[in-house]
Amino acid sequence: MLEITALHASVGGKDILRGIDLTVNAGEVHAIMGPNGSGKSTLAGLLAGRAEYTVTSGTVRYQGKDLLTMAPEDRARNGVFLAFQYPVEIPGVNNAYLLKAALNEVRKHRGEPELDAMEFMALVKKQLEVLEISPDLLNRPVNDGFSGGEKKRNEIFQMAVLEPKLAILDETDSGLDIDALQIVAKGVNALRRPERSTVVITHYQRMLNYIVPDFVHVLAEGRIVKSGGKALALELEAKGYGWIDGAAAEMGA
């Protein structure tokens, strides 16, 4: 599904990613954990096609294709979905209108017929219930005036409707209370499929109690310094991130 090899990237001349290797197979859930500034969000933004990052070396292959040469919209149409850490507020663009446009772009790309407003509403109704989203959220401008929890739930709602092949959740747990976190996790878990891969980026282990990963990777100073099973997340929770500094220094040596 996703194959990252020796990826180096910089932003504004500063090296952020310094040799990432990561393979995500279909159906797997990978958690990427790490302290602030370790490069987690850079990796997420880079995979979605954010323009401000420069890849200095390395490759990213998605379904066998070179992901890095694809425009952000082509990545999305091909099934890459980024749930934003900070969903952008867009006054003047109706939430339902955007989602319908997005869904029809994806459907067009898959060679499926576009949905009209009625068909779209029928489709989203169930997802709204799963995520306990009030239907009037659909008729508000995208993220504009949403609470932190509403924004994150709206991201997962979009993901549910767009049915991506590779979902990247960037700090989706940040700013959520425990109830909201459980709702979001329920939404994500409902989307788990053998053919769908998920990359969960988080600072805290908390979310991984609800979205249980197959693999956990620790990112520090732009490199994956340790990989393991779900137990690794608990270890991090117990020990904090302090001990990995040594590991990062060791790798750099």
């Binding site: 979605a48 096609g49 954010r50 323009a51 425009a71 952000p72 919209e73 990545r75 999305a76 149409r77 980024l82 934003f84 969903p87 952008v88 867009i90 663009v93 955007l98 989602l99 446009a101 997005a102 772009e105 994806v106 790309h109 995208v142 979009q158 767009l162």
Partner: peptide, 12 residues
């Protein structure tokens, strides 16, 4: 905002 819309599949 542009990136957000593109990341949802809309052409630039």
């Amino acid at each position: 905002m542009l990136f957000y819309l593109q990341a949802r599949g809309l052409g630039r």
